[in-house]
Design a protein around this nucleic acid. Structure first.
Length: 276
DNA sequence: ACTTTAACCTGAACGC
DNA sequence: TGCGTTCAGGTTAAAG
């Protein structure tokens, strides 16, 4: 499901709704989702703590607690947070709810059809050095993500530019939808090897990354099948997509057909005429 | 050490 | 209607 703009949308929403509330109780229905700590310890740390704010590192959600710990949550493909009134527990809607945080005002339900999502708990003093977060690279919206940085990271690589941008250790938060859109707008073929991407093309990739991701955040993300926040409120950036999911449709720039191909087994959408 | 594949899960869409 | 196959916004352990 979620890439940087969708995760940021969730962060923005949760910051409006749950900050300052105490975790009264915790119900864990899928124990395997908690990765680095026992269920007993996970509960012991979280219950009674107050949520101070929610932050984002790449595609990870960081819940800062008032007791010196952070809870790290990754939504993977389909994870989402639902806010449900206490009296609102319908069995059908709860089918794929795996964790229920009982807060002071309502239940915060973690819903995940495919059960790919993960939860970890760290001391707040060094969570950035954790196994999962230590390898997350610079955020594309950070000023440090510039063309010199990108060029220096890719100019000796024999991997396709799409694969490089998709990996979280070079730049974080970009996933399959936005990498396709960024490369289309930058007019660079997703197959082009890193070593063949020019400085000028790096400038365009960086510029378009920032433009597209910022706009997508303004539009509350992209909903292609299931992404929603605020209980089924969908994002609207899908109305601005140029290539993702547009195979056989005319290119918005040149009218030739958008092509779908595969890179590392992942759907890759592009215009063979515009992107070189 | 580095690169590719398989696995983790469920459900929707499609072909026969 | 039903059954088998493929695909999905991600990451990572295992295999090559």
């Amino acid at each position: 499901m979620p890439e940087l703009p969708e995760v940021q949308t969730v962060v923005n929403h949760l910051n409006k709704k749950i900050v300052g509330q105490k975790i009264i109780n915790l119900e864990i229905l899928q124990e395997k989702m908690i990765k680095n700590i026992s269920i007993t310890d996970f509960k012991a740390v979280l219950i009674g703590s107050i949520i101070q704010n929610i932050d984002r590192v790449g595609k990870y959600l960081i819940f800062h607690l008032d007791n010196g710990y952070v809870m790290v949550s990754h939504l993977r493909m389909e994870g989402k947070y639902l806010i449900r009134d206490f009296e609102d527990i319908e069995p059908l809607a709860m089918k794929h709810v795996h964790i229920i945080f009982t807060l002071e005002k309502f239940n915060l339900c973690y819903h995940d059809t495919r059960k790919f999502g993960t939860f970890t708990l760290y001391e707040s003093s060094d969570f950035l050095n954790s196994k999962e977060l230590s390898k997350i690279a610079i955020d594309p919206l950070n000023d440090g993500f510039d063309y010199e940085y990108l060029f220096s990271k890719i100019n000796k690589s024999k991997k396709p530019i799409k694969t490089l941008l998709l990996g979280q250790e070079l730049v974080s938060g970009i996933g399959n939808i936005y990498v396709c859109e960024i490369l289309f707008s930058a007019r660079v073929s997703p197959f082009k090897l890193g070593s063949l991407v020019s400085e000028q093309e790096c400038k365009l990739i960086v510029k378009e990354s920032k433009r597209i991701l910022k706009l997508a955040i303004e539009k509350n993300g992209t909903t292609v099948s299931s992404f929603s926040f605020d209980n089924n409120h969908a994002g609207t950036f899908q109305d601005f997509l140029n290539v993702y999911g547009k195979q056989k449709l005319p290119c918005s720039n040149c009218n030739s057909k958008i092509v779908k191909d595969y890179i590392s087994k992942r759907g890759t959408y592009f215009c063979n005429n515009c992107q070189k």
